[in-house]
Design a protein around this nucleic acid. Structure first.
Lengths: 191, 191
DNA sequence: GTAGGGTAATCTACCAATTGGTAGTTGAGG
DNA sequence: CCTCAACTACCAATTGGTAGATTACCCTAC
């Protein structure tokens, strides 16, 4: 059981890296097998089909996001600090100039993904959008943030900007623009 | 020659639609052949390899963008009107809740694309970023736009927001958020 | 203490389907 | 007659997936 979970975990780890680097349609069980030093057929013992693996990837991503955001909540930070924590992982991804956000790449490949994987990953966006909307709403109510648009819209705008920035970073030699972009987002919130 | 170009054109048309719907790695020569009512092997007469087809797709997209932006220039519009024209195609794509921007999907799949295709499509982003930077710079200089960040940064932020919004629209039932997001962008430019 | 059974996890050896791509043929038009 | 543009008929490689053997280990019963 320990070994089982360990291997399952490693598979997921490798698969996620491949997902972020190449997308779900552009990596194969063989790729994972090679990297893990195991036979391709053995992978089917842990994840019967690629659709199952995909679902696990979407699940992991959504759950990790949920945990991450709850972690921020438990820190009892100011809205500005909460936002900074929220931005961090996106900024880090952009700076790799190589890796996509799992949610972003899954969205891009949406139509080609197995249904359960689609559903679970839509929840990812719902999760982060709900959280961000709440932070913006509370931040404005407490007078610490200042902005005109509806919080739900502003939240979409911010998420779009971050996901889009990661996308664009892949086509540039560097991601020097990411910090100023985040700065600009803050300005738009009255920062 | 006329027929040749016509078929070539049709192939490109179909391929672009498939590209936007499923991504470069998730459609095959067979898919195009089916839709065009032609044998798969015949496609190789027009585009020797899928890499060639991909390059043509990237080329077409970059050239179309260039023409589109030059068209805007020739209209001699105000900065605000120029921006509205610029936003249009992105907004339309977002509202399909299904189609990606060719540039966006190519960026997402970047690492898996043939080198020449990568290069040509990077130019797409350079083209629109250069244009947008210029419009922002001139608009601010003429006092019609007002914003704090550097124009080049603001341009990246806007493009990222639009590309990201298209991405996110695919995961939502509707894209009602897109118009308000564009509105918010305008507000951030002093609108 | 050891023989035996069960289970978890891997392996080898396949499979059909699909992929991008090639060789060589055919038919229609100028 | 020649060339364009299509065709048929392949090909090797890769894909996700299956069947069944093998290994290793733990738990029990004698």
């Amino acid at each position: 059981m320990a070994v089982h979970n360990d291997t399952r975990q490693q598979i997921l780890e490798i698969a996620e890296e491949l997902l972020q680097k190449r997308g779900f349609n552009a990596f194969s069980y063989q790729d994972i097998a090679n990297e893990l030093g195991i036979r391709k057929a053995s992978l089917h013992y842990h994840y019967a089909s690629k659709a199952d693996l995909g679902l696990a990837l979407a699940e992991r991503h959504a759950n990790r996001a949920l945990g991450f955001l709850q972690g921020i909540d438990e820190m009892h930070l100011s809205p500005w600090q909460q936002l900074d924590e929220f931005f961090k992982p996106f900024v880090d991804l952009a700076k790799t100039c190589q890796l996509m956000c799992p949610g972003g790449i899954m969205a891009a490949e949406f139509e080609t993904l197995p249904k359960p994987m689609q559903n679970r990953m839509c929840e990812y966006f719902t999760i982060i959008h709900t959280w961000l909307t709440r932070v913006l709403t509370q931040g404005r109510a407490s007078g610490q943030l200042y902005f005109g648009a509806e919080p739900a819209i502003k939240a979409y705008a911010i998420i779009a900007t971050l996901e889009g920035a990661i996308l664009i970073a892949k086509t540039r030699q560097n991601a020097d623009f990411i910090d100023p972009i985040v700065q600009d987002i803050k300005v738009s919130l009255g920062g």
